[in-house]
Design a protein around this nucleic acid. Structure first.
Lengths: 334, 334
DNA sequence: AGGCAATGTGGTAGCGCTAGCATCGAGTCA
DNA sequence: TGACTCGATGCTAGCGCTACCACATTGCCT
């Protein structure tokens, strides 16, 4: 079924049908209704492959997130879709599972589909992907970190500063022997920055460091529990653990309970992202709040601005972060 | 940049470039290498809009999931992508947030993109979407439930039987006053089936029912905690609560702890899906295990089979479920 | 009345690719 | 040697739509 079939039934030319669908304000009400009736009668669905090929615009934005196992991206995705939908754009979603080559494949696929914009997490990408994005000229925005050398634009927060601030907060609460758990650092600049902020804080505060204080856990509760157990066994004098992902931090709280370790008395636990699970834990989780909805919405707006060809948005936007003290760490001295 | 530019640089015709990309076994090794070199030199990325328009195949499967807030779909998505990638297909992902009109929009968009297959969650869909899918002739598979009247094919498990089995298990453990929390039932046949199984079990076992025993909570820990609090306040004699989503059930365990209610002594708690958080809770969560990876992989295989035009797969596949008793419910009598 | 803008609609061409057949050259066999 | 096969490559047409310009109609001004 083609646009021509609709045109014939409605008694107009194909181009009028096209306008009714895409630019209905250019068609007089009566014509519009006749065409719409024909479309409904036939159950016609326009072929976007053909439409986009002819118009060289797809009204699709490609987003590659790193995982579906944590729900933090759910909020970012809502921020993006809420903004995009009102502008008549849609989101196409890819999941990389933190593998560079999977991200590459998604981006190449997006470029092959001729998406109008691309959104990626973090600043580390395959060299060829970077080149392909630059060469294609599509607007690109990197999120979840402040990227030093963005491909195009960037909106996020400083993971380094956030991590630094949390460690300083823990120290301020009286914790001295502070461990850190992040997602794997390979090809993950957010994890790298969080480790760097941690190291910088320890050095500046004169707190002890040892390799055994650092552990790795991806996105799940179970992995956080295991990381906690392992660091504690290597560091019997551990008195605080900062897990830079709330699910993992929740796992640590649960593991502590299982072992009869009191939180925050024996050991303080802190997380990152202010996921909903943190508030429900017993004790509630001290965490870093980041602004994912705003970040997603801003990323979408920046892409749209670039697409519309108006004034280029400021290329780097910092949405900030806040330390949220809760029951899983001791209160700071008054 | 077009296929012609690559062809010129490689000294062959455009069609040979096309074959190098899509059917490389039809091109002799020497030619193939020359073309590949030209592609790499230019950073050429084929325009899939044009390719798919000409070939009437996109090698894309559209999937609409209902939420990103629970990570249960992460596993299904992995099952699908693992299977699809090896066949050279990709997944395009939409999130409906359980809204029928959003699902509709995604499906219409998929059909507009001329995807080669569609996968939807559950069996309740917009009437026009059903019609559009049937009319388009694309293979469709519905997952996460055993759908009585599938659009095309279906792979899942019986939510009604699973819910029935869990309530019977709870009764067998000595619980009598059993409450239920599901996601909203509107347009959600999984929730409806879980309520039906619960009602059938209560009736068959001669256990008491009251409207106040039933609550609603979507996918988060916080919502589960609130639902638990509310049902408990309405039913002081409650002795077990079955929350048909593990995050929510985890929230109930945490809320019980906050209130000093002992689990499983005072109240038994059961969940659904066997998410990783359940095993880590203290006490660990009794749950219904379903087979999401297998379900996703099977759904993908069924679609591919239909696309290849071979023998049509059996239209309904039951991947089953198991009751997993853990510490959040009393052990059954020996 | 003639000119002119504003508005709505139509015709033509082409977006970049691949299906389907045509062609060409080299090897094979009687 | 000639007929034939087979594998590699090329040519033509067209996938379904929209950009671009042309054109018709209307209402308004001078």
């Amino acid at each position: 079924m083609r646009i021509e079939d609709v045109a014939r039934l409605a008694g107009v030319s194909p181009i009028t049908v096209s306008r009714t669908i895409n630019k209905s304000d250019q068609v007089v009400e009566e014509t519009r209704r006749a065409v719409q009736k024909a479309i409904d009668r036939l159950g016609y669905i326009p072929n976007r492959l053909a439409g986009s090929l002819a118009s060289t615009r797809t009204r699709v934005i490609g987003l590659v997130i790193s995982t579906l196992y944590s729900n933090i991206f759910a909020i970012t995705v809502r921020g993006m879709t809420d903004t995009l939908l009102t502008a008549g754009y849609q989101l196409s979603l890819g999941v990389s599972n933190d593998l560079l080559e999977v991200e590459s494949a998604h981006v190449r696929s997006f470029l092959g589909q001729r998406v109008d914009g691309v959104c990626l997490v973090g600043g580390i990408h395959d060299r060829l992907v970077r080149r392909a994005l630059l060469q294609s000229g599509v607007p690109v925005v990197e999120i979840n970190n402040l990227v030093s050398d963005p491909i195009d634009m960037c909106v996020g927060y400083s993971n380094e500063e956030a991590s630094f601030a949390m460690v300083r907060h823990l120290a301020n609460c009286g914790y001295r022997r502070i461990g850190l758990v992040t997602a794997p650092t390979e090809n993950n600049d957010r994890s790298q920055a969080r480790r760097a902020g941690y190291r910088r804080a320890l050095a500046q505060l004169g707190l002890p460091f040892a390799d055994s204080l650092i552990g790795t856990a991806p996105y799940t509760v179970a992995q956080g529990a295991r990381a906690f157990a392992s660091i504690l066994s290597l560091n019997p004098d551990l008195d605080a653990l900062f897990l830079t992902q709330d699910n993992a931090a929740a796992g640590a709280i649960l593991e502590a309970k299982r072992r009869g370790v009191r939180v925050p008395g024996d050991i303080g636990i802190a997380g990152f992202d202010d996921a909903d699970i943190g508030q429900e834990m017993v004790p509630a989780l001290t965490t870093v709040r980041t602004h994912h909805y705003e970040m997603g919405a801003t990323a979408a707006r920046m892409l749209l601005r670039r697409i519309d060809g108006g004034a280029p948005p400021h290329p780097v936007v910092d949405v900030g972060f806040e330390i949220i003290p809760r029951g899983s760490t001791r209160p700071p001295p008054a």
